[in-house]
Write a protein that binds this DNA or RNA. Structure first.
Length: 258
DNA sequence: ATGGTAGAGTGTCTA
């Protein structure tokens, strides 16, 4: 089974690329972030024609997550227990959606950006991650994968210019400790061993031709529970998806399961 | 420190 994750930065403006990506890589389950669409705005026809089911959670202009699956899509849950706003159908949150696809529990996650270190959104980000970690410990014994845009660069080598980011979010010790906490609990970054750095990124800002100069960050990850991680036979980052006109600012991550 | 680009939707906000 082939899993993928992709911050598409608008599903509506990226639908042609998404459909082509699914076909080109023969993807079974694709987790999307930043769909920037309400559920009824998701362009379904082409995806359904390709044999996929779609579960989405979108409530505003900048969040939005979805799971696209052709191996079943069951037990869909918007948000996780303990998440701010969880259980409230009107909550202005659409940063997490879970579903069981082909026997694997997959969570598509759009971790809060945090904005600036002195911004309340930074505190919110750390709190959100702590609550996710608490919930995720209950899923460790299952075939679980936590995928998406973590908005954290865990290592210095994951940032094109650490000096430029030294006082910014995404690299602070508290954010990195939050990410490391998942690894300490037993989750495994199933991508990195197959895509070793340095200078291997998943995100390049639209500004200043950052992609063309490979000035990016590695902030998108697939973290597998121990049993899931043991099934991973390979992984890749499709950086070609960041190239050319009409690209998202993120590249997809892919993992293969035995 | 600032500004550069892209996408949501028409005013700016978000990243």
């Amino acid at each position: 089974m082939r899993l993928a994750t992709w911050n598409v930065n608008s599903i509506r403006s990226r639908i042609d690329r998404v459909e082509a990506f699914l076909e080109r890589h023969d993807v079974d389950v694709l987790a999307l972030q930043e769909t920037k669409a309400k559920d009824e705005q998701i362009p379904l026809m082409g995806l359904q024609a390709l044999g996929y089911e779609v579960a989405a959670a979108g409530t505003n202009q900048w969040n939005g997550v979805a799971i696209i699956s052709r191996v079943g899509l069951g037990d869909v849950q918007v948000g996780f227990p303990g998440m701010p706003g969880w259980g409230d159908p009107l909550a202005p949150e659409s940063r997490a959606i879970g579903a069981t696809c082909g026997g694997v529990r997959i969570w598509s996650l759009y971790v809060p950006n945090g904005r600036k270190v002195d911004d309340p959104h930074y505190v919110y980000k750390l709190d959100w991650l702590a609550r996710l970690r608490s919930a995720a410990t209950d899923w460790l014994a299952d075939d679980t994968v936590l995928v998406g845009d973590w908005n954290i660069a865990p290592r210095d080598e994951d940032v094109y210019d650490m000096a430029a980011f030294a006082t910014d979010t995404h690299v602070t010790p508290r954010e990195r400790a939050a990410f490391q906490g998942f690894l300490d609990d037993g989750y495994v970054d199933v991508t990195r061993e197959f895509t070793p750095g340095p200078k291997v990124y998943t995100y390049w800002d639209y500004y200043r031709q950052r992609f063309e100069r490979n000035r990016g960050m590695r902030i998108d990850f697939l973290l597998g529970s121990p049993s899931l991680a043991s099934r991973v036979t390979g992984a890749s980052i499709d950086r070609n998806e960041r190239a050319g006109q009409g690209a998202s600012d993120h590249a997809p991550g892919i993992a293969d399961l035995a």
